[in-house]
Amino acid sequence: MLWIGLCITLWAWCLLSLGLSRHHEAVLLRSPTHARRRVLRILGWGLLGAGFAWFVGCTGWELGPIFWGSALMLSAIAWVLLMTLVPRRSMAIPSLASVATVIWLLIGSG
């Protein structure tokens, strides 16, 4: 539950930050077009909402928003650290985390 939610919010921050030219250049080494920035931002905001739906769906209206808020804060800090420490490979971590979570889920259900 928590890992999937953290993956969603981590991707959300990743896309939102890439929607800013400065970070897009640092991570992907080229400046984004206007249209690309828009798409990244819309996707990022969409994932933030999806994270809310995920946590509320899993833990209910009482705990869900608290989980969501906590996950947002920690994944934002995690993403900033990743972009700072390993800018070129920063996207590898959310990718690996997502893949690991999917595999873990498959093993768990299988």
Binding site: M1, L2, T59, L63, I66, F67, S70, A71, L74
Partner: peptide
Amino acid sequence: FGGNAMRWLY
């Protein structure tokens, strides 16, 4: 509330 998951987040 929220078990160990919430405690780790806090």
